[in-house]
Design a binder for these strands. Structure first.
Length: 269
DNA sequence: TCCTTATGTACAA
DNA sequence: TGTACCTAAGGAC
């Protein structure tokens, strides 16, 4: 379930289980075997997230760079680690814990300067202290691209994915097809602040919830619903269902090869 | 057992 | 814009 909040949570969880220990590092699947052999038995000294990128720092001065892509999954458990399945790309194991990584787009050993280059091509991350929302707005306000596409562009904002994109636009009643240069500074400030709050809550709870208490189905007198991605949302994957606020139909469309969801009544052009 | 789908990205044309 | 890549779950047969 990889949007930025997931990755920041993983940075915390990897640290809690392995920081300042020297785990055994293996690649049961085989695609990371040589690098794992270099790292095994060296101390994990840092974990860090920027957008959807995760970095595990080792004493040797190198980093494991992980990107989950669409399918990547991470599983933690207590020692002793079970026999790994043959899809485990990376396993860390120490005397108390193990963690398995499956299906990542990226799992590579990189240097400090390669890591710097990755930070350099990513936009500000609402979950990082060093984030500058004005830098994001400079790009947004100069662009004729839709705000829906801009929010997904990791060079503009790092960490927002398809769920937060759809939900934050709904919460601010912004039509996803409006262009970046139509977004006012006040609108952008509100979007940014909301993303920071929502994503921080996402890190805490390890899921995406965006529905305000006064709009829950219970509060609105509607039957409760089930979202199979595990959070309470207004529009994401709710195509053809009634909008929680106006009761109109939620719409869906293809936008840059991703599914967009919005309420055409609440989010007027 | 097969097919579809998914919270992502990179690269070719 | 299209396609390739990585995995697992759920639904149709």
């Amino acid at each position: 379930m990889p949007e930025g909040h997931t990755i920041h949570r993983l940075a915390q969880d990897y640290a809690a289980a392995f920081l300042r220990t020297a785990p055994q590092v293996t690649s049961p699947q085989g695609k990371f075997t040589d690098s794992a052999a270099l790292l095994t038995g060296t101390e994990l000294t840092a974990t860090e997230a920027h957008g959807k990128h995760l970095f595990l720092g080792f004493r040797a001065g190198e980093w494991i760079h992980i990107h989950l892509g669409l399918f990547g999954k991470v599983t933690f458990g207590p020692a002793p680690a079970p026999r790994p399945t043959d899809t485990v790309r990376l396993r860390l194991a120490n005397s108390t814990s193990y963690v398995d990584l499956r299906g990542p787009t990226t799992c590579a050993l990189i240097t400090d300067s390669e890591k710097g280059a990755i930070h350099g091509r990513l936009g500000p991350d609402p979950l990082r202290e060093d984030a500058d929302p004005k830098a994001a707005y400079r790009r947004v306000s100069r662009s004729r691209t839709t705000i829906a596409a801009l929010l997904m562009d990791q060079k503009v904002v790092a960490g927002v994915g398809n769920v937060y994109r759809a939900e934050v636009l709904f919460r601010h009643r912004i039509d996803p097809y409006r262009t970046g240069n139509s977004v006012t500074p006040a609108e952008w400030d509100a979007i940014w602040q909301d993303l920071a709050d929502l994503m921080r809550e996402g890190v805490r709870n390890n899921r995406i919830d965006t529905v305000r208490p006064e709009h829950t189905p219970e509060a609105m007198g509607r039957p409760p619903r089930v979202d199979d991605h595990g959070g309470e949302v207004y529009v994401y994957r709710r195509a053809n269902l009634p909008c929680l606020i106006c009761g109109g139909e939620i719409r869906t469309a293809d936008l840059a090869a991703r599914n967009l969801f919005w309420c055409p009544t609440c989010q007027k052009p």
